[in-house]
Computed example of a mutant assay.
Amino acid sequence: MSPTQNIVLITGANQGIGYAVAEQLLKHENYFILLGSRNAENGIKAAAKLDPSGKSVEPITIDVTDDASIQQAADQIASKYGHIDVLINNAGNNNEFTHYWKQQESKEEIKLDLAALRQIYREAYDVNLFGAAITTEAFIPLLKKANAKPARIVFVSSHTGSIGLRTDPSSEFYERMSRPSFPAYRSSKTAMNMLTLHYAAMFKEQGWKVNASCPNLTKSAFTRFSDLGRSPAESAVNIVRLANLPENGETGQYLDENGIVAW
């Protein structure tokens, strides 16, 4: 890699939105991609597909639910590169989709027992909130050494985490957002939004740009390639923009490609 390249780590990037973000960032000559993947083999394959030369993409094994894995990734990157310039917390979980599709296929209500319900909540929060928080903490020392200014953090959130959209009848999203669906996933993304504000405030004086992006419903493995979703490439656009923010760019915001989203 070139000394002038921005180093960006993307978690959960071997497929879907994360992969599309990497693909679009590669169109910017100044980016070196650390392609995060929970499964090492999947990461290697995805990195080779993105960049057969290996000059601009390197696979990094990181499981955001495993503290040892997070620390190992941080140590590996610190030893080899000494810093990162951008962190994109993209890894996500919505096991409620699995239950939803089972109900759709059976056409009958499938009642979860309490233990199964607790597990769904635990897994959603473990990735979407705890994983994003612990990963951010692990990489703050490397972001403090960023070559590019400002350092940037992007949390990949969701419109479904917006309390504003959920409660505003005048919103075009209200009908969809006010439905009683996916409470574990949605509440975990609401919590992620508060995490965004926390880190934006923490590094405001240093000029860091810390924002949350709403990619919208996307056709990917995450949603079992739902026909209702749009392409990962479309959903990646605003994430890529936030990863490229200049010194006068926004921070502490919750946005999609059309602008600010109500918290």
Score class of each variant (00 low, 15 high):
residue 2 S to P: 08
residue 3 P to K: 15
residue 5 Q to W: 05
residue 6 N to K: 15
residue 6 N to C: 10
residue 6 N to I: 09
residue 6 N to V: 09
residue 11 T to R: 10
residue 13 A to C: 12
residue 14 N to D: 11
residue 17 I to M: 06
residue 29 E to D: 14
residue 30 N to D: 14
residue 35 L to M: 09
residue 35 L to E: 03
residue 36 G to F: 05
residue 46 A to W: 03
residue 48 A to G: 11
residue 49 K to A: 13
residue 50 L to E: 02
residue 51 D to F: 02
residue 51 D to H: 10
residue 58 E to G: 00
residue 60 I to R: 08
residue 64 V to K: 10
residue 66 D to W: 13
residue 66 D to P: 06
residue 71 Q to K: 15
residue 74 A to C: 12
residue 76 Q to V: 02
residue 78 A to N: 15
residue 79 S to V: 02
residue 79 S to C: 04
residue 82 G to S: 04
residue 82 G to L: 13
residue 86 V to H: 09
residue 94 N to F: 07
residue 100 Y to Q: 13
residue 101 W to T: 11
residue 103 Q to E: 14
residue 109 E to K: 15
residue 118 R to L: 09
residue 119 Q to G: 04
residue 124 A to M: 06
residue 126 D to P: 05
residue 126 D to A: 15
residue 126 D to I: 06
residue 126 D to G: 11
residue 127 V to F: 09
residue 127 V to A: 09
residue 132 A to D: 02
residue 133 A to Y: 10
residue 134 I to R: 15
residue 138 A to R: 07
residue 146 A to C: 08
residue 153 I to D: 05
residue 155 F to D: 01
residue 177 M to S: 11
residue 183 P to I: 13
residue 185 Y to K: 09
residue 188 S to T: 07
residue 188 S to V: 09
residue 190 T to V: 08
residue 192 M to V: 08
residue 192 M to G: 03
residue 194 M to Y: 13
residue 200 A to G: 05
residue 200 A to W: 03
residue 201 A to L: 04
residue 203 F to P: 03
residue 206 Q to P: 00
residue 206 Q to N: 05
residue 209 K to S: 03
residue 214 C to H: 01
residue 214 C to S: 02
residue 226 S to E: 00
residue 226 S to W: 04
residue 231 S to P: 00
residue 232 P to W: 03
residue 238 N to G: 00
residue 240 V to H: 04
residue 245 L to N: 07
residue 245 L to W: 09
residue 252 G to H: 09
residue 253 Q to R: 14
residue 254 Y to P: 00
residue 257 E to T: 10
residue 260 I to W: 00
